[in-house]
Design a protein around this nucleic acid. Sequence first.
DNA 1: TAGCAGTGTAA
DNA 2: TTACAC
DNA 3: GCTA
Length: 517
Amino acid sequence: MTSKLLFHDVHAILIPENISKTRIDIMRQRLTEKGGTVVTSTSTKVTHIITAHQCLHQVLGFLKLDTLPPDCKVVSPDFIAKSIQHGCLEHSGCEVQFIEPALPKKTESVIRVLDSDEELSEAETEPLDDYEQQLMESMWSESQAATTETDNEFENPPSIYSEATNAEATSNSNQTERKKIIIPEALLRYMNASPNSSENKNQHITDEFTRLVKRAETEGNQWRIRSYKKAVKIISKLSFRIMSKEDVKGLKGIGKNMTLKIEEILRTGYSLKAHTIPEKFGPLEKFKNIYGVGEKIAEKFYTIGYRTLEDVKSKATLTRDQQLGIKYYDDFLQRIPRSECSKIAEFVTKMVHELDANLICRMMGSYLRGSETCGDVDFMITDPNGLPNEGLLESIVLKLKNVGFILENLSSPASEDGHERIWRGICKLAGVGIARRIDILIVPFDELGAATIYFTGNTEFNRCIRLLARKMGYSLNQHGLFRKGPNGEKTLVASKTEQEIFDILGVPWKPATERNI
DNA sequence: TAGCAGTGTAA
DNA sequence: TTACAC
DNA sequence: GCTA
Ligand SMILES: O=c1ccn([C@H]2C[C@H](O)[C@@H](COP(=O)(O)OP(=O)(O)OP(=O)(O)O)O2)c(=O)[nH]1
Ligand SMILES: [Mg+2]
Protein backbone atom coordinates (compact mmCIF):
# COMPACT_ATOMS: atom_id res chain seq x y z
CA MET A 1 0.00 0.00 0.00
CA THR A 2 1.04 3.55 -0.50
CA SER A 3 2.44 4.95 2.64
CA LYS A 4 0.26 8.04 2.70
CA LEU A 5 -3.44 7.88 2.12
CA LEU A 6 -5.11 10.30 -0.23
CA PHE A 7 -6.80 12.44 2.39
CA HIS A 8 -4.08 12.05 4.99
CA ASP A 9 -3.68 15.76 5.59
CA VAL A 10 -7.32 16.68 5.16
CA HIS A 11 -9.26 17.94 8.13
CA ALA A 12 -12.68 18.70 6.75
CA ILE A 13 -15.91 20.16 7.97
CA LEU A 14 -18.94 18.77 6.17
CA ILE A 15 -21.80 21.21 5.97
CA PRO A 16 -24.86 19.02 5.55
CA GLU A 17 -27.24 21.73 4.44
CA ASN A 18 -28.76 21.02 1.07
CA ILE A 19 -26.95 17.73 0.81
CA SER A 20 -28.82 14.52 1.33
CA LYS A 21 -28.00 12.52 4.40
CA THR A 22 -27.04 9.54 2.29
CA ARG A 23 -24.55 11.61 0.41
CA ILE A 24 -23.09 13.06 3.58
CA ASP A 25 -22.68 9.57 4.99
CA ILE A 26 -20.91 8.39 1.90
CA MET A 27 -18.66 11.41 1.84
CA ARG A 28 -17.75 10.95 5.46
CA GLN A 29 -17.01 7.30 4.87
CA ARG A 30 -14.87 7.90 1.76
CA LEU A 31 -13.03 10.65 3.48
CA THR A 32 -12.16 8.70 6.59
CA GLU A 33 -11.34 5.46 4.85
CA LYS A 34 -8.72 7.29 2.85
CA GLY A 35 -7.10 8.86 5.84
CA GLY A 36 -9.05 12.08 6.16
CA THR A 37 -10.48 13.54 9.32
CA VAL A 38 -13.98 14.87 9.71
CA VAL A 39 -13.98 17.66 12.19
CA THR A 40 -17.04 19.19 13.74
CA SER A 41 -15.70 22.35 15.15
CA THR A 42 -13.44 25.15 14.04
CA SER A 43 -11.54 25.07 17.26
CA THR A 44 -9.21 22.45 15.81
CA LYS A 45 -7.29 22.52 12.56
CA VAL A 46 -9.47 22.78 9.46
CA THR A 47 -8.09 22.44 5.94
CA HIS A 48 -11.31 22.02 3.99
CA ILE A 49 -14.92 23.03 4.24
CA ILE A 50 -17.18 20.94 2.08
CA THR A 51 -20.45 22.63 1.28
CA ALA A 52 -23.19 22.93 -1.27
CA HIS A 53 -23.65 26.57 -0.38
CA GLN A 54 -22.62 29.25 -2.80
CA CYS A 55 -22.78 32.19 -0.47
CA LEU A 56 -20.09 32.99 2.04
CA HIS A 57 -22.59 34.20 4.58
CA GLN A 58 -24.31 30.82 4.55
CA VAL A 59 -21.07 29.03 5.27
CA LEU A 60 -20.03 31.48 7.95
CA GLY A 61 -23.52 31.35 9.41
CA PHE A 62 -23.33 27.62 9.77
CA LEU A 63 -19.89 27.78 11.31
CA LYS A 64 -20.84 30.71 13.48
CA LEU A 65 -17.76 32.55 12.36
CA ASP A 66 -17.08 36.01 11.03
CA THR A 67 -14.31 34.98 8.70
CA LEU A 68 -13.07 31.75 7.22
CA PRO A 69 -10.37 29.88 9.11
CA PRO A 70 -6.88 30.54 7.74
CA ASP A 71 -5.44 28.21 5.09
CA CYS A 72 -8.78 26.63 4.58
CA LYS A 73 -10.27 25.75 1.21
CA VAL A 74 -14.01 25.81 0.63
CA VAL A 75 -14.93 23.10 -1.84
CA SER A 76 -18.06 21.64 -3.33
CA PRO A 77 -19.31 18.17 -2.37
CA ASP A 78 -17.87 16.56 -5.47
CA PHE A 79 -14.38 17.32 -4.22
CA ILE A 80 -14.14 13.93 -2.59
CA ALA A 81 -15.32 11.89 -5.54
CA LYS A 82 -13.16 13.85 -7.93
CA SER A 83 -10.10 13.51 -5.75
CA ILE A 84 -10.58 9.79 -5.49
CA GLN A 85 -11.09 9.57 -9.21
CA HIS A 86 -7.93 11.51 -9.96
CA GLY A 87 -5.91 10.02 -7.18
CA CYS A 88 -4.94 13.43 -5.89
CA LEU A 89 -6.58 16.33 -4.14
CA GLU A 90 -8.64 17.90 -6.86
CA HIS A 91 -9.10 21.51 -5.88
CA SER A 92 -9.41 22.95 -9.33
CA GLY A 93 -13.02 23.02 -10.32
CA CYS A 94 -14.14 22.20 -6.81
CA GLU A 95 -13.29 25.39 -5.00
CA VAL A 96 -16.45 27.28 -4.36
CA GLN A 97 -16.62 30.63 -6.03
CA PHE A 98 -18.76 32.58 -3.66
CA ILE A 99 -21.58 34.62 -4.90
CA GLU A 100 -23.25 37.12 -2.66
CA PRO A 101 -26.64 38.48 -3.49
CA ALA A 102 -26.30 42.25 -3.66
CA LEU A 103 -29.27 42.64 -1.37
CA PRO A 104 -30.22 39.76 0.85
CA LYS A 105 -33.83 40.88 0.81
CA LYS A 106 -34.89 37.38 0.13
CA THR A 107 -37.58 37.24 2.76
CA GLU A 108 -39.30 40.19 1.26
CA SER A 109 -39.42 38.89 -2.24
CA VAL A 110 -40.50 35.46 -1.18
CA ILE A 111 -43.32 36.85 0.89
CA ARG A 112 -44.40 38.86 -2.08
CA VAL A 113 -44.50 35.68 -4.03
CA LEU A 114 -46.67 34.03 -1.49
CA ASP A 115 -49.00 36.98 -1.52
CA SER A 116 -49.48 36.76 -5.20
CA ASP A 117 -50.00 33.05 -4.80
CA GLU A 118 -52.97 33.77 -2.62
CA GLU A 119 -54.41 36.13 -5.14
CA LEU A 120 -53.94 33.70 -7.92
CA SER A 121 -55.19 30.75 -6.06
CA GLU A 122 -58.55 30.61 -7.74
CA ALA A 123 -57.27 31.66 -11.09
CA GLU A 124 -56.08 28.07 -11.25
CA THR A 125 -52.35 28.28 -10.93
CA GLU A 126 -52.25 26.76 -7.54
CA PRO A 127 -49.19 25.39 -5.94
CA LEU A 128 -49.40 26.12 -2.21
CA ASP A 129 -49.60 23.93 0.77
CA ASP A 130 -46.75 21.47 0.64
CA TYR A 131 -45.13 23.90 -1.59
CA GLU A 132 -45.82 26.86 0.58
CA GLN A 133 -44.35 24.96 3.44
CA GLN A 134 -41.32 24.29 1.39
CA LEU A 135 -40.86 27.95 0.73
CA MET A 136 -41.37 28.84 4.35
CA GLU A 137 -38.98 26.18 5.41
CA SER A 138 -36.36 27.33 2.98
CA MET A 139 -36.63 30.83 4.32
CA TRP A 140 -36.56 29.61 7.81
CA SER A 141 -33.63 27.32 7.43
CA GLU A 142 -31.71 30.02 5.69
CA SER A 143 -32.28 32.75 8.21
CA GLN A 144 -31.49 30.27 10.88
CA ALA A 145 -28.28 29.31 9.27
CA ALA A 146 -27.41 32.94 9.03
CA THR A 147 -28.07 33.67 12.64
CA THR A 148 -27.54 30.73 14.92
CA GLU A 149 -27.87 27.19 15.72
CA THR A 150 -28.27 24.33 13.51
CA ASP A 151 -28.79 22.49 16.67
CA ASN A 152 -26.32 19.73 16.25
CA GLU A 153 -23.64 18.90 13.83
CA PHE A 154 -24.78 16.58 11.15
CA GLU A 155 -28.15 15.46 10.09
CA ASN A 156 -30.71 18.10 9.61
CA PRO A 157 -30.49 18.70 5.99
CA PRO A 158 -33.62 20.71 5.35
CA SER A 159 -36.24 18.04 5.62
CA ILE A 160 -37.79 19.13 2.36
CA TYR A 161 -35.07 17.39 0.52
CA SER A 162 -35.01 14.19 2.40
CA GLU A 163 -37.19 12.30 -0.02
CA ALA A 164 -38.62 14.18 -2.96
CA THR A 165 -41.47 12.30 -4.50
CA ASN A 166 -44.48 12.63 -6.71
CA ALA A 167 -46.51 10.25 -4.59
CA GLU A 168 -49.80 11.39 -3.10
CA ALA A 169 -48.96 13.44 -0.06
CA THR A 170 -51.97 11.98 1.66
CA SER A 171 -51.67 13.53 5.08
CA ASN A 172 -53.13 16.94 4.39
CA SER A 173 -53.82 17.13 0.74
CA ASN A 174 -57.57 17.28 0.67
CA GLN A 175 -59.48 20.53 0.34
CA THR A 176 -60.05 21.58 -3.20
CA GLU A 177 -58.93 19.56 -6.12
CA ARG A 178 -55.75 21.43 -6.85
CA LYS A 179 -53.57 20.30 -9.61
CA LYS A 180 -50.65 18.38 -8.33
CA ILE A 181 -47.27 19.57 -9.36
CA ILE A 182 -45.51 16.66 -10.92
CA ILE A 183 -41.76 16.82 -10.69
CA PRO A 184 -40.17 15.49 -13.86
CA GLU A 185 -38.71 12.03 -13.29
CA ALA A 186 -35.20 12.99 -14.30
CA LEU A 187 -35.24 15.88 -11.88
CA LEU A 188 -36.50 13.60 -9.13
CA ARG A 189 -33.50 11.38 -9.64
CA TYR A 190 -31.29 14.44 -9.35
CA MET A 191 -33.02 15.50 -6.16
CA ASN A 192 -32.82 12.09 -4.57
CA ALA A 193 -29.16 11.73 -5.35
CA SER A 194 -28.72 8.06 -5.75
CA PRO A 195 -24.95 7.85 -5.56
CA ASN A 196 -25.52 4.61 -7.34
CA SER A 197 -21.98 4.43 -8.53
CA SER A 198 -22.34 0.84 -9.62
CA GLU A 199 -21.76 0.26 -13.28
CA ASN A 200 -24.32 -0.17 -16.00
CA LYS A 201 -25.70 -3.66 -15.60
CA ASN A 202 -27.65 -3.52 -18.83
CA GLN A 203 -25.13 -2.39 -21.36
CA HIS A 204 -26.33 -4.94 -23.88
CA ILE A 205 -29.62 -3.06 -23.86
CA THR A 206 -28.37 0.50 -23.62
CA ASP A 207 -25.93 -0.09 -26.48
CA GLU A 208 -28.84 -0.96 -28.70
CA PHE A 209 -30.90 1.92 -27.40
CA THR A 210 -28.00 4.28 -28.08
CA ARG A 211 -28.13 3.13 -31.68
CA LEU A 212 -31.81 3.91 -31.66
CA VAL A 213 -31.00 7.38 -30.36
CA LYS A 214 -28.66 7.89 -33.30
CA ARG A 215 -31.25 6.57 -35.66
CA ALA A 216 -33.84 8.92 -34.25
CA GLU A 217 -31.39 11.79 -34.58
CA THR A 218 -30.94 11.31 -38.28
CA GLU A 219 -34.68 10.88 -38.57
CA GLY A 220 -34.97 14.16 -36.76
CA ASN A 221 -37.95 13.44 -34.55
CA GLN A 222 -37.01 15.46 -31.51
CA TRP A 223 -39.48 13.75 -29.17
CA ARG A 224 -38.37 10.30 -30.12
CA ILE A 225 -34.77 11.38 -29.66
CA ARG A 226 -35.50 12.71 -26.22
CA SER A 227 -37.47 9.64 -25.21
CA TYR A 228 -34.72 7.24 -26.20
CA LYS A 229 -32.07 9.37 -24.53
CA LYS A 230 -34.09 9.33 -21.34
CA ALA A 231 -34.55 5.60 -21.61
CA VAL A 232 -30.82 5.07 -21.93
CA LYS A 233 -30.26 7.02 -18.73
CA ILE A 234 -32.97 5.16 -16.88
CA ILE A 235 -31.83 1.73 -17.96
CA SER A 236 -28.15 2.38 -17.40
CA LYS A 237 -28.87 3.43 -13.83
CA LEU A 238 -30.83 0.33 -12.90
CA SER A 239 -29.35 -1.53 -9.99
CA PHE A 240 -30.18 -4.92 -11.47
CA ARG A 241 -29.85 -6.69 -14.77
CA ILE A 242 -33.06 -6.82 -16.75
CA MET A 243 -34.08 -10.44 -17.13
CA SER A 244 -37.58 -10.10 -18.54
CA LYS A 245 -40.09 -7.50 -19.54
CA GLU A 246 -41.57 -7.75 -16.08
CA ASP A 247 -38.46 -6.01 -14.85
CA VAL A 248 -39.28 -2.84 -16.73
CA LYS A 249 -43.01 -2.84 -16.18
CA GLY A 250 -43.90 0.32 -14.32
CA LEU A 251 -40.67 2.10 -15.15
CA LYS A 252 -41.67 5.56 -16.16
CA GLY A 253 -40.20 6.49 -19.52
CA ILE A 254 -40.21 2.94 -20.82
CA GLY A 255 -43.45 2.38 -22.66
CA LYS A 256 -44.95 -0.26 -24.86
CA ASN A 257 -42.65 0.19 -27.79
CA MET A 258 -39.46 0.19 -25.78
CA THR A 259 -40.58 -2.79 -23.77
CA LEU A 260 -40.95 -4.67 -27.03
CA LYS A 261 -37.46 -3.60 -28.02
CA ILE A 262 -36.08 -4.79 -24.71
CA GLU A 263 -37.81 -8.13 -25.11
CA GLU A 264 -36.34 -8.44 -28.56
CA ILE A 265 -32.86 -7.65 -27.28
CA LEU A 266 -33.19 -10.14 -24.45
CA ARG A 267 -34.33 -12.78 -26.92
CA THR A 268 -32.08 -12.17 -29.91
CA GLY A 269 -29.28 -10.06 -28.54
CA TYR A 270 -30.02 -7.03 -30.64
CA SER A 271 -32.71 -4.73 -32.00
CA LEU A 272 -33.42 -5.24 -35.66
CA LYS A 273 -34.43 -1.63 -36.08
CA ALA A 274 -31.17 -0.44 -34.57
CA HIS A 275 -29.25 -2.31 -37.21
CA THR A 276 -31.34 -1.90 -40.33
CA ILE A 277 -30.47 1.60 -41.42
CA PRO A 278 -31.98 2.75 -44.74
CA GLU A 279 -29.37 3.85 -47.28
CA LYS A 280 -30.55 7.38 -47.26
CA PHE A 281 -29.60 7.73 -43.62
CA GLY A 282 -25.93 7.84 -44.57
CA PRO A 283 -26.20 11.00 -46.65
CA LEU A 284 -28.73 12.46 -44.24
CA GLU A 285 -26.36 12.05 -41.33
CA LYS A 286 -23.51 13.58 -43.34
CA PHE A 287 -25.64 16.60 -44.15
CA LYS A 288 -26.96 16.98 -40.64
CA ASN A 289 -23.42 17.18 -39.35
CA ILE A 290 -22.99 20.47 -41.18
CA TYR A 291 -23.40 23.28 -38.69
CA GLY A 292 -26.61 25.04 -39.69
CA VAL A 293 -28.14 22.02 -41.40
CA GLY A 294 -30.81 20.07 -39.60
CA GLU A 295 -33.16 17.28 -40.45
CA LYS A 296 -35.34 19.30 -42.81
CA ILE A 297 -32.57 20.73 -44.91
CA ALA A 298 -30.76 17.41 -44.95
CA GLU A 299 -33.93 15.83 -46.26
CA LYS A 300 -34.25 18.59 -48.83
CA PHE A 301 -30.73 18.01 -50.07
CA TYR A 302 -31.42 14.31 -50.37
CA THR A 303 -34.64 14.87 -52.28
CA ILE A 304 -32.88 17.17 -54.68
CA GLY A 305 -30.52 14.32 -55.34
CA TYR A 306 -27.43 15.30 -53.40
CA ARG A 307 -25.59 12.41 -51.86
CA THR A 308 -22.19 13.71 -50.85
CA LEU A 309 -20.68 16.77 -49.22
CA GLU A 310 -19.19 17.56 -52.60
CA ASP A 311 -22.69 17.75 -54.05
CA VAL A 312 -23.75 20.18 -51.35
CA LYS A 313 -20.59 22.23 -51.59
CA SER A 314 -20.81 22.63 -55.35
CA LYS A 315 -24.56 22.84 -55.94
CA ALA A 316 -26.47 24.01 -52.86
CA THR A 317 -27.18 27.57 -51.83
CA LEU A 318 -25.81 27.86 -48.34
CA THR A 319 -26.13 30.37 -45.54
CA ARG A 320 -22.95 31.84 -44.17
CA ASP A 321 -23.08 29.57 -41.14
CA GLN A 322 -23.51 26.54 -43.34
CA GLN A 323 -20.57 27.57 -45.49
CA LEU A 324 -18.45 27.72 -42.36
CA GLY A 325 -19.97 24.43 -41.33
CA ILE A 326 -18.59 22.90 -44.50
CA LYS A 327 -15.25 24.63 -44.21
CA TYR A 328 -14.72 23.19 -40.74
CA TYR A 329 -16.69 20.01 -41.30
CA ASP A 330 -14.06 17.54 -40.14
CA ASP A 331 -12.95 19.70 -37.25
CA PHE A 332 -16.42 20.02 -35.79
CA LEU A 333 -16.93 16.29 -35.86
CA GLN A 334 -14.12 15.87 -33.38
CA ARG A 335 -14.82 16.13 -29.70
CA ILE A 336 -12.52 18.27 -27.58
CA PRO A 337 -10.44 16.45 -24.99
CA ARG A 338 -10.88 17.87 -21.53
CA SER A 339 -7.18 18.64 -21.36
CA GLU A 340 -7.51 20.93 -24.36
CA CYS A 341 -10.57 22.57 -22.83
CA SER A 342 -8.53 23.33 -19.74
CA LYS A 343 -5.87 24.99 -21.85
CA ILE A 344 -8.47 27.02 -23.69
CA ALA A 345 -10.06 28.04 -20.41
CA GLU A 346 -6.73 29.15 -19.04
CA PHE A 347 -5.87 31.05 -22.18
CA VAL A 348 -9.18 32.84 -22.57
CA THR A 349 -9.30 33.72 -18.89
CA LYS A 350 -5.85 35.22 -19.15
CA MET A 351 -6.86 37.31 -22.15
CA VAL A 352 -10.02 38.47 -20.43
CA HIS A 353 -8.12 39.43 -17.32
CA GLU A 354 -5.69 41.45 -19.38
CA LEU A 355 -8.65 43.58 -20.34
CA ASP A 356 -10.04 43.76 -16.83
CA ALA A 357 -8.69 41.74 -13.98
CA ASN A 358 -11.93 42.03 -12.07
CA LEU A 359 -13.97 40.08 -14.55
CA ILE A 360 -15.12 36.59 -13.71
CA CYS A 361 -14.56 34.19 -16.57
CA ARG A 362 -15.68 30.58 -16.34
CA MET A 363 -15.92 27.75 -18.78
CA MET A 364 -19.41 26.32 -18.57
CA GLY A 365 -21.41 23.60 -20.28
CA SER A 366 -20.21 20.03 -20.42
CA TYR A 367 -16.74 21.06 -19.22
CA LEU A 368 -18.11 22.36 -15.94
CA ARG A 369 -20.13 19.20 -15.60
CA GLY A 370 -16.92 17.21 -15.74
CA SER A 371 -17.15 15.65 -19.19
CA GLU A 372 -13.95 14.02 -20.43
CA THR A 373 -14.63 15.38 -23.92
CA CYS A 374 -16.72 18.35 -24.97
CA GLY A 375 -18.56 19.21 -28.15
CA ASP A 376 -17.60 22.86 -27.89
CA VAL A 377 -16.38 25.36 -25.32
CA ASP A 378 -18.76 27.69 -23.52
CA PHE A 379 -17.64 30.78 -21.63
CA MET A 380 -19.57 32.95 -19.25
CA ILE A 381 -18.10 36.31 -18.34
CA THR A 382 -19.45 38.67 -15.75
CA ASP A 383 -18.43 41.87 -14.03
CA PRO A 384 -18.98 41.47 -10.30
CA ASN A 385 -19.26 45.22 -10.01
CA GLY A 386 -22.57 45.23 -11.79
CA LEU A 387 -23.38 45.82 -15.41
CA PRO A 388 -20.86 44.69 -17.96
CA ASN A 389 -19.31 47.50 -19.94
CA GLU A 390 -20.96 48.32 -23.18
CA GLY A 391 -18.54 46.98 -25.72
CA LEU A 392 -16.95 44.46 -23.41
CA LEU A 393 -17.89 41.59 -25.68
CA GLU A 394 -16.47 43.37 -28.69
CA SER A 395 -13.20 44.09 -26.88
CA ILE A 396 -12.84 40.49 -25.84
CA VAL A 397 -13.60 39.11 -29.27
CA LEU A 398 -11.31 41.63 -30.92
CA LYS A 399 -8.47 40.79 -28.59
CA LEU A 400 -8.92 37.08 -29.13
CA LYS A 401 -8.97 37.67 -32.88
CA ASN A 402 -5.81 39.73 -32.75
CA VAL A 403 -3.91 36.99 -31.01
CA GLY A 404 -5.13 34.53 -33.61
CA PHE A 405 -7.33 32.53 -31.30
CA ILE A 406 -10.68 33.42 -32.79
CA LEU A 407 -10.96 32.55 -36.47
CA GLU A 408 -14.57 33.21 -37.45
CA ASN A 409 -17.87 34.72 -36.36
CA LEU A 410 -21.05 32.74 -36.55
CA SER A 411 -24.45 34.39 -36.35
CA SER A 412 -25.30 35.16 -32.78
CA PRO A 413 -28.32 36.45 -30.94
CA ALA A 414 -28.23 40.21 -30.44
CA SER A 415 -28.70 41.92 -27.12
CA GLU A 416 -32.27 40.83 -26.67
CA ASP A 417 -33.09 43.99 -24.78
CA GLY A 418 -31.32 43.55 -21.50
CA HIS A 419 -27.60 43.59 -20.99
CA GLU A 420 -26.84 39.99 -21.76
CA ARG A 421 -24.67 39.49 -24.81
CA ILE A 422 -24.05 36.31 -26.73
CA TRP A 423 -21.35 35.59 -29.24
CA ARG A 424 -20.81 32.44 -31.25
CA GLY A 425 -17.79 31.64 -33.30
CA ILE A 426 -14.88 29.44 -34.15
CA CYS A 427 -11.51 29.34 -32.44
CA LYS A 428 -8.29 27.39 -32.52
CA LEU A 429 -5.67 27.05 -29.84
CA ALA A 430 -2.07 27.51 -30.91
CA GLY A 431 -0.46 24.12 -31.24
CA VAL A 432 -3.74 22.35 -31.84
CA GLY A 433 -4.59 21.58 -35.40
CA ILE A 434 -8.32 21.51 -34.94
CA ALA A 435 -10.77 24.40 -34.99
CA ARG A 436 -13.42 24.46 -32.28
CA ARG A 437 -16.83 25.94 -31.75
CA ILE A 438 -16.88 28.55 -29.02
CA ASP A 439 -19.73 30.39 -27.31
CA ILE A 440 -19.30 33.42 -25.11
CA LEU A 441 -21.99 34.81 -22.84
CA ILE A 442 -21.65 38.16 -21.13
CA VAL A 443 -24.09 38.36 -18.27
CA PRO A 444 -24.99 41.19 -15.91
CA PHE A 445 -24.09 40.32 -12.35
CA ASP A 446 -27.74 40.51 -11.35
CA GLU A 447 -28.55 37.60 -13.62
CA LEU A 448 -25.62 35.44 -12.70
CA GLY A 449 -27.68 32.78 -10.95
CA ALA A 450 -30.16 32.27 -13.75
CA ALA A 451 -27.45 32.44 -16.38
CA THR A 452 -25.38 29.91 -14.48
CA ILE A 453 -28.25 27.46 -14.34
CA TYR A 454 -28.84 27.89 -18.04
CA PHE A 455 -25.25 27.62 -19.18
CA THR A 456 -24.38 24.80 -16.83
CA GLY A 457 -27.08 22.56 -18.19
CA ASN A 458 -27.28 19.92 -19.23
CA THR A 459 -30.05 20.53 -21.71
CA GLU A 460 -32.28 17.91 -20.13
CA PHE A 461 -31.73 19.42 -16.70
CA ASN A 462 -32.73 22.83 -18.01
CA ARG A 463 -35.85 21.54 -19.67
CA CYS A 464 -36.89 19.67 -16.54
CA ILE A 465 -36.34 22.51 -14.13
CA ARG A 466 -38.01 24.95 -16.50
CA LEU A 467 -40.96 22.63 -16.80
CA LEU A 468 -41.18 22.41 -13.03
CA ALA A 469 -41.07 26.18 -12.77
CA ARG A 470 -43.86 26.46 -15.31
CA LYS A 471 -46.03 23.97 -13.46
CA MET A 472 -45.52 25.99 -10.32
CA GLY A 473 -46.73 29.12 -12.03
CA TYR A 474 -43.32 30.53 -12.82
CA SER A 475 -41.23 30.87 -15.89
CA LEU A 476 -37.50 30.26 -15.84
CA ASN A 477 -35.09 31.47 -18.48
CA GLN A 478 -31.47 32.56 -18.60
CA HIS A 479 -32.35 35.93 -17.06
CA GLY A 480 -34.30 34.85 -14.05
CA LEU A 481 -37.24 33.18 -12.43
CA PHE A 482 -40.47 35.03 -13.10
CA ARG A 483 -43.90 34.81 -11.55
CA LYS A 484 -46.60 34.63 -14.16
CA GLY A 485 -49.44 37.01 -13.54
CA PRO A 486 -53.07 36.56 -14.55
CA ASN A 487 -52.67 38.74 -17.62
CA GLY A 488 -49.52 37.09 -18.72
CA GLU A 489 -47.19 39.62 -17.10
CA LYS A 490 -44.06 38.23 -15.65
CA THR A 491 -42.48 39.72 -12.59
CA LEU A 492 -38.94 38.90 -11.62
CA VAL A 493 -38.72 36.78 -8.52
CA ALA A 494 -35.10 35.71 -8.40
CA SER A 495 -32.02 35.75 -10.59
CA LYS A 496 -28.94 36.59 -8.58
CA THR A 497 -27.90 33.20 -7.29
CA GLU A 498 -28.61 29.64 -8.22
CA GLN A 499 -29.38 29.02 -4.59
CA GLU A 500 -32.32 31.38 -4.36
CA ILE A 501 -33.84 30.03 -7.56
CA PHE A 502 -33.41 26.42 -6.51
CA ASP A 503 -34.82 27.28 -3.10
CA ILE A 504 -37.98 28.73 -4.54
CA LEU A 505 -38.47 25.73 -6.78
CA GLY A 506 -37.76 23.34 -3.93
CA VAL A 507 -34.87 21.77 -5.75
CA PRO A 508 -31.63 21.19 -3.86
CA TRP A 509 -28.59 22.91 -5.22
CA LYS A 510 -25.94 20.51 -6.37
CA PRO A 511 -22.69 21.04 -8.23
CA ALA A 512 -22.57 20.95 -11.99
CA THR A 513 -21.21 17.42 -12.03
CA GLU A 514 -24.52 16.22 -10.61
CA ARG A 515 -26.50 17.77 -13.41
CA ASN A 516 -25.79 15.25 -16.14
CA ILE A 517 -29.29 13.97 -15.77
C1' DT B 1 -54.68 13.01 -27.64
C1' DA B 2 -52.25 17.19 -26.16
C1' DG B 3 -47.99 18.29 -24.28
C1' DC B 4 -43.15 17.86 -23.98
C1' DA B 5 -38.32 24.86 -22.20
C1' DG B 6 -37.43 29.11 -23.51
C1' DT B 7 -35.12 32.36 -26.50
C1' DG B 8 -32.91 34.21 -30.55
C1' DT B 9 -31.17 34.51 -35.89
C1' DA B 10 -31.69 33.68 -40.94
C1' DA B 11 -34.45 33.39 -44.74
C1' DT C 1 -43.34 30.90 -40.45
C1' DT C 2 -40.07 27.45 -40.58
C1' DA C 3 -35.59 25.67 -39.52
C1' DC C 4 -31.66 25.69 -36.67
C1' DA C 5 -28.86 26.64 -32.62
C1' DC C 6 -27.75 27.20 -27.53
C1' DG D 1 -41.05 8.16 -28.08
C1' DC D 2 -43.94 8.35 -23.36
C1' DT D 3 -47.43 10.19 -20.07
C1' DA D 4 -51.63 11.96 -17.93
O1 LIG E 1 -31.05 23.26 -26.40
C1 LIG E 1 -30.27 23.69 -25.53
C2 LIG E 1 -28.87 23.67 -25.69
C3 LIG E 1 -28.08 24.13 -24.67
N1 LIG E 1 -28.62 24.61 -23.53
C4 LIG E 1 -27.76 25.06 -22.42
C5 LIG E 1 -27.36 23.87 -21.58
C6 LIG E 1 -26.01 23.53 -22.08
O2 LIG E 1 -25.24 22.87 -21.12
C7 LIG E 1 -25.46 24.88 -22.40
C8 LIG E 1 -24.34 24.83 -23.42
O3 LIG E 1 -24.81 24.29 -24.63
P1 LIG E 1 -23.98 23.22 -25.45
O4 LIG E 1 -24.71 22.96 -26.72
O5 LIG E 1 -22.58 23.65 -25.58
O6 LIG E 1 -24.10 21.88 -24.58
P2 LIG E 1 -23.07 21.24 -23.58
O7 LIG E 1 -23.85 20.81 -22.41
O8 LIG E 1 -21.94 22.15 -23.29
O9 LIG E 1 -22.55 19.93 -24.32
P3 LIG E 1 -21.44 19.85 -25.47
O10 LIG E 1 -20.35 19.02 -24.93
O11 LIG E 1 -22.12 19.22 -26.62
O12 LIG E 1 -20.99 21.24 -25.77
O13 LIG E 1 -26.57 25.62 -22.90
C9 LIG E 1 -29.98 24.64 -23.37
O14 LIG E 1 -30.46 25.08 -22.34
N2 LIG E 1 -30.78 24.18 -24.38
MG1 LIG F 1 -20.80 23.03 -24.76
